[in-house]
């Protein structure tokens, strides 16, 4: 007998539109979040926060209630939602610029308060939506539209290491950095995303996953070259791994 081994998750709309460029990791990340919501059986009890960036049209694909935040303010909006409806599962889906530049204060303080929400951050080392300018995570030497000779520490400063920073915050219960550059990496990323939701569900604190993701369009690379870059120079600076795991400790 033929068995169905994969289908689109229910947490993705039937009439979904993927608004990302060809080969962009955003699409995989979105699906993984949806699969986790399905597996945890929380789709009907979830409120997502769409942030400003390439993922602003989250409601085009997520089949859950969604509220849009101003650029960078997702974790504050999530706080407002969660504190008003503590029994809801609340998550943000943010870019690196959104979470770690304009929204770093909201991010750090929501996590310091240990808000019982889950934050997913797509780190593609650039402001993708606005056309690939240098952002907080742009690597030293990386060429962008605003670092045409490559990012220089003396002029542009250093890339911010989000997971290393957030693991130090007492209110975070789970912090992991993952990649999506291979089938195994995708499987691992999903496990971590699930843990980040479990941190919330178990009331342990904020769950956080940083996803090292591609932006083939602005990197001017094929999707394959882009994954090479994630595996190579990006992972060298931003080491993938589990930085904090109170979820397993609590088990």
């Amino acid at each position: 007998m033929e068995q169905l081994v994969y289908k689109k998750p229910d947490s993705i709309r039937d009439d979904f539109k993927i608004t990302f460029c060809p080969g962009c990791d955003h699409g995989v990340a979105v699906r993984l979040v949806a699969e986790v919501l399905d597996e945890l059986g929380v789709r009907e009890n979830t409120i997502g926060i769409a942030s400003v960036g390439c993922s602003v049209f989250s409601y085009d694909f997520f089949n859950v209630d969604i509220v849009e935040a101003q650029h960078g303010r997702s974790m504050a909006v999530a706080t407002g939602v969660k504190r008003s409806k503590p029994d809801k599962i609340v998550f943000t889906y943010q870019g690196d610029g959104d979470l770690a530049s304009i929204g770093i204060a909201e991010t750090i303080h929501a996590m310091t308060r240990g808000e019982k929400v889950t934050a997913i951050c797509i780190n593609n080392t650039t402001y993708g939506m606005t056309g690939g300018q240098a952002g907080p995570t742009t690597l030293l030497g990386q060429v962008t539209t605003t670092t045409t000779q490559g990012r220089r520490a003396d002029i542009n400063g250093y890339p911010i290491k989000i997971s290393e920073l957030l693991k130090e915050i007492e209110g975070t219960a789970y912090v992991a950095r993952v990649t999506l550059d291979s089938p195994q990496a995708v499987v691992n990323a999903k496990k971590c995303i699930k843990k980040a939701f479990e941190a919330q569900i178990k009331g342990l604190g904020t769950g956080f996953v940083e996803i090292l993701a591609t932006c083939p369009t602005n990197w001017k690379m094929t999707p394959q070259q882009a994954h090479e870059r994630v595996r190579g120079e990006m992972s060298d600076v931003f080491k993938p791994g589990i930085y904090k795991d109170k979820v397993s400790e609590a088990k």
Binding site: Y6, G27, V28
Partner: peptide, 10 residues
């Protein structure tokens, strides 16, 4: 699992 566009439906 690797398709970013969920073009592979089943």
């Amino acid at each position: 699992r690797v398709c970013p566009d969920m073009a592979i439906e089943k």
